[in-house]
Nucleic acid binder design. Structure first.
Lengths: 199, 199
DNA sequence: CTGCTATTAAGACTTGGTCATAATAGCTAT
DNA sequence: ATAGCTATTATGACCAAGTCTTAATAGCAG
């Protein structure tokens, strides 16, 4: 009972192929696997894989959401609590997309980004820019761990703010940083609405 | 010659509506605008807007590319030159997606990410992790500017590497940082292939 | 009334499928 | 071997969301 390419084998491969080329059509798949279109359709049915247009649509939907959440959000992570000019807490759920595939260790700049944007968000000014930062990574973060960053404004003289950020996973410190953040005036002065500015 | 909703008006609105709901079909549009499907099709033709499936496909394609380039690339920016354990140069083209909309100033963590990943890439080890970093933002970066980061390994004792990174736009220094990067052993020891590890 | 634009309609064809119903091949267990 | 099983392929009807072509109609302007 061994034709050449057995069914379970084909199913596994099929799943993989579709996984990393969701745009592929049944016809192309049939051709690639040397079977009929109907077989491919039955296989998809069995695997619960939707048709190519549906796959494309989902990808597009998901991706637009992702882009929105990554790029439109002014702060990296969720702002849980803020006392402007004083303190704040932000939570960031890490996932494997933030990590190196090989090690599942979260890339440093994500941890930095959370802390930095929190520090900047605390400064009560039209625009705030990070000037200097001294940071320490205390232990590696694995994908899936929840980062809780607490920030505190240590001192302020004029437009210069010193913000201390400590990021924890549970009770474990994983990161600390001291950010010198400067408040800046509105630049052109032609802003139509005047919400707070970050970084 | 004023029916109620004039053509040029409808065209403008049509463009907008499709813009922020690319999944919408001609039928839905026809219904929403109170005209026939054919009218919508002619309008799209005139505006050079492709059909809904095509729009969806493009969105998905673009988005997967973006996700890939942001999340799968091991190094942020393009590695122009590397002498492992010694020095390296990376180039990062900034765009408005990296900046705050209001100010067009590039978010600090992108600049940090480029420098950090370059520093880590220079360390010749299976896995390398940033321990400490002291960084300075010297001037704001505007969306569209090209960041050139140069890194140099200043010293090394055992697994501890001190890497100095300077990022410029043209001849202008915009960022400097000193990264303490640690080389680490393979963790589980069950890696099937052994390419270099970053960060 | 003629000409113009805008709109709508009608018909044939395309892609990439779904769904239902068969027919066929190859093995297997009784 | 023969009935039974799974896997595969085929066939035909149908759908959504279009395309492209040709044509009819409405409303107004000169």
């Amino acid at each position: 009972m061994k034709p050449k390419f057995q069914k379970p084998d084909r199913l596994r491969r099929l799943r993989e192929v579709i996984e990393n080329d969701p745009f592929i059509t049944d016809k192309e798949l049939a051709c690639a696997f040397g079977v009929s279109i109907q077989t491919i359709r039955l296989d998809r049915l069995e695997l619960g894989i939707p048709e190519s247009r549906e796959r494309t649509r989902r990808l597009a939907e998901e991706a637009t959401n992702k882009v929105r959440s990554v790029e439109t959000g002014e702060v990296i992570g969720d702002l849980i609590h803020v006392k402007l000019g004083q303190e704040g807490i932000s939570v960031l759920e890490t996932d494997k997309d933030m990590a190196f595939q090989r090690t599942s260790i979260v890339r440093g700049h994500h941890i930095f980004a959370q802390a930095n944007s929190l520090a900047v968000a605390l400064v009560d000014a039209e625009i705030a820019l990070t000037g200097t930062a001294t940071i320490k990574y205390l232990r590696p973060v694995r994908a899936g761990e929840r980062l809780v960053a607490k920030a505190e404004v240590l001192s302020r003289s004029g437009r210069r703010h010193v913000v201390k950020v400590t990021t924890k996973i549970g009770h474990d410190d994983v990161f600390t940083g001291e950010f010198i953040v400067f408040a800046v005036e509105e630049p052109g002065g032609c802003g139509e609405d005047s919400r707070r500015g970050f970084d």
